[in-house]
Nucleic acid binder design. Structure first.
Lengths: 147, 147
DNA sequence: CTGTGTGCAAACTCTTTGCATAAGT
DNA sequence: ACTTATGCAAAGAGTTTGCACACAG
């Protein structure tokens, strides 16, 4: 894959993505930069490995599913993505690292952001001895009304 | 497996479990009753299929792993168990159906109940058109301090 | 050049399913 | 008896890994 951006914007994005990856301590390889662009250039996203891989294939990005899995895990470990706590087997990641929570649509397994401002939790008990709170995940499960 | 309870209490529990299963619309088979006893006789429990199967084996309950999976899913569908939303791949069930939330210990993947009284959430936004809130899952992730 | 990343296929883990047998009513 | 559940083994879904080749610095 030669570096042939279609326009200045995508050139700029790729450069930013390289920087971003370098700052996160990762070598900005072609696949990582391309996946990073897919993930971060259009605002908040909720993806699983399979979906991101399909999308990469559509965009003619040569990347294997195994590399997508590895890359998502690396991005999460580097603090670029957060993993979402969900019922079920599939692992989802969220590109929005800010403190916010989710709606989960049960029928089609879709995730939606809940604006942070709206939600607040009170009365979280003291963490047990020697522990600290690493984060609070809230999922509001939604289903179709009067089914 | 002949019905040979060690004492009256276990006889009584088995009877109650049979009733409970019947009320939930399930035939009280030996395996389901035995698994139900394991799950419900000692208060709140958090189990995955593998763990429950090991426990059944220890208790000399003849049951296959596949049946444990099926039974857990049936119990959930019947409203006897709730499935817990978690980061990662494995499915956990909670025998406590009351409205409560969880601590999740990241290092050993352990779940602990948070007493319901302590926690409250406010400002959950309106569900989108035609949707209703099926439930709210909150997981407070804990990690070891000053690592 | 040197070391890290990638692709592929195979392995692995968790979960579900198909079919013959066993058990519940 | 009739129907549903179970056990087993095999299949399926999702994810990780080992190793040879490719690429970034």
């Amino acid at each position: 894959m030669t570096n042939t951006p279609e326009n200045e914007l995508s050139q700029k994005q790729t450069i930013n993505m390289s920087e971003k990856l370098r700052l996160a301590g990762m070598r900005p390889t072609r696949q990582r930069v391309a996946l990073g662009d897919l993930l971060f250039k259009n605002g908040d996203r909720h993806v699983c490995a399979e979906i991101l891989h399909e999308e990469a294939v559509e965009h003619k990005i040569p990347v294997s599913l195994a590399t997508v899995y590895n890359t998502l895990n690396q991005f999460r470990d580097a603090g670029l993505l957060r993993e979402v706590a969900l019922v079920g087997t599939r692992v989802y990641f969220d590109t929005n690292m800010s403190d916010h929570q989710h709606f989960y649509l049960e029928e089609n397994a879709e995730l939606l952001d809940i604006p942070n401002s709206a939600l607040s939790v009170s009365g979280i008990p003291e963490a047990p001895e020697g522990m600290e709170v690493a984060g609070v995940d809230i999922v509001v499960r939604l289903r179709a009304k009067n089914k």
